[in-house]
Design a binder for these strands. Structure first.
Length: 201
DNA sequence: ACCGGGATGTTCT
DNA sequence: GAACATCCCGGTG
């Protein structure tokens, strides 16, 4: 598991380094293959742009914890909180390459997840597949129980792609999305950037 | 394959 | 009352 200091950096520094980690929850786990960095007062695309609110409290909390939020009336999305406590800095987990617990993931995702690539190829799919929700907001990823992060040991990806972030109306020009180029779990049809787009299929 | 729209409810203005 | 860090389905080509 990464040192606490690993997370106590700006999210834009941590984000690409997360591409070698595995998110684990119970029997279910997957390699992180797509992330987006969010900052604070300097990032109009961030939930923390206008300061701390009850919803975003975890974003301002200690690094290495989860920030889990509810959106569009039905979806949960999970972030890894970064930076020193008191600052707003987090990395959204956008996609995993499933490694274990695939039967549990299929049961959680339902019949719509026909192929393995349908399990974790998006931020809300990832939360649903791993069973993450509001009860995990603020939990310590470096703690013993519950969801945690472990080193994957895959080595640095051969090619790390980079682009602008997905689904925003503010801060759309910041190239703060990173992904493992060529991985089929990376969400599709996404904005291109200085270093190319995600996979075409 | 691609595109447009609906679902659904919390949060903040 | 509007926006929302999304996903899924049904239409068309």
């Amino acid at each position: 598991m990464p040192d606490r200091a690993f997370f106590a950096r700006d999210s834009r520094m941590v984000a690409p380094d997360l591409l070698d980690l595995v998110l684990v929850h119970g029997e279910r786990s997957g390699r992180i293959v797509e992330v987006e960095a969010y900052a604070g007062p300097d990032d109009p695309g961030s939930h923390g742009f206008r300061g701390e609110t009850p919803r975003t409290a975890a974003m301002f909390g200690p690094p290495g914890h989860l920030y889990v939020y509810f959106t569009y009336g039905m979806h949960w999305c999970a972030n890894v909180v970064c930076g020193p406590e008191g600052t707003c800095s987090a990395v959204l987990i956008r996609a995993l390459a499933p490694l274990s617990g695939l039967e549990e993931m299929r049961a959680a995702r339902g019949p719509v997840a026909r192929r393995d690539v349908d399990l974790c190829s998006g931020p809300a799919k990832t939360c649903q597949a791993l069973g993450l929700d509001g009860s995990h907001d603020g939990v310590d990823l470096c703690g013993g129980a519950g969801p945690r992060l472990v080193v994957g040991g895959f080595g640095r990806p051969a090619r790390i792609g980079r682009s602008t972030r997905v689904g925003l109306t503010q801060g759309v020009d910041h190239p703060w999305r990173w992904f493992v180029a060529g991985d089929p779990n990376v969400s599709k049809g996404r904005p291109s950037g200085p270093d190319g787009d995600g996979p075409s299929r």
